[in-house]
Amino acid sequence: MNITRRQMLILLPAAAVAWESILAGTPESSPNYNLSEHWWGMLIDIPKCIGCGNCVRACQAENDVPDGYFRTWIERYHVTDSNLANPEVISPDGGKHGFPVAKEDKGKYFFVPKMCNHCAESPCTQVCPVGATFISPDGVVLVDQKYCLGCAYCVQACPYGSRYIHPQKRVADKCTLCYHRITKGLTTACCEACPTGARQLVDLKNPNDPIHAFLKTHAVQVLKPQMATGAKAFYNELDGSVR
């Protein structure tokens, strides 16, 4: 085969491009799931939460969360006239086994389920030195556990305390918004297990999602709005004393 110098110069980059695409392999097939068509979040309806702990147990069962660590947990607030700014907050074992019965009816009680807020401008992903944590194109904050060094910068950076270092894997771990479920058309384990519908997975890019009507007609807040994290865990009727 005779190849001129000119042909060789054209063929070499072409071969390089071909080799690149061979290395990349065929893209993983994910039927009916398009990354760019979703922008996930969570709606948490405070008046509906009864503090049963189903979400905490479901999360631990679905995601093999180690004992004593939580991707989601429930806090119980007790606000009385004398402690409006400093409410009593309890979360025994993250609310996993429910809460002690409250006999005294003074003041106001309510439950606040907490989890990763899947912030659009998340502080945790900005501090990662190696690019192991990131916001996926569909709006979920995830950890690449093969790439994570376990330096725990992100654990310190999260203003919501939603991350921990996995005691066995020694890498950062957190709520994935059940990414393995929502990409298959299922809802998250916590939403599936919530008996009162206090938690609802929402897709902000889906024009038919009931979240759009809900946001128009309800007093919805995010946690720590002053930090401008772009949090996507929306709390309905959140009390001002919640930090």
Partner: peptide, 14 residues
């Protein structure tokens, strides 16, 4: 990493 995380097993059938 996206496909790896999405491939984890499901425990709640729905």
């Amino acid at each position: 990493a996206l496909t790896e995380i999405a491939a984890k097993p499901v425990h709640f059938a729905g």
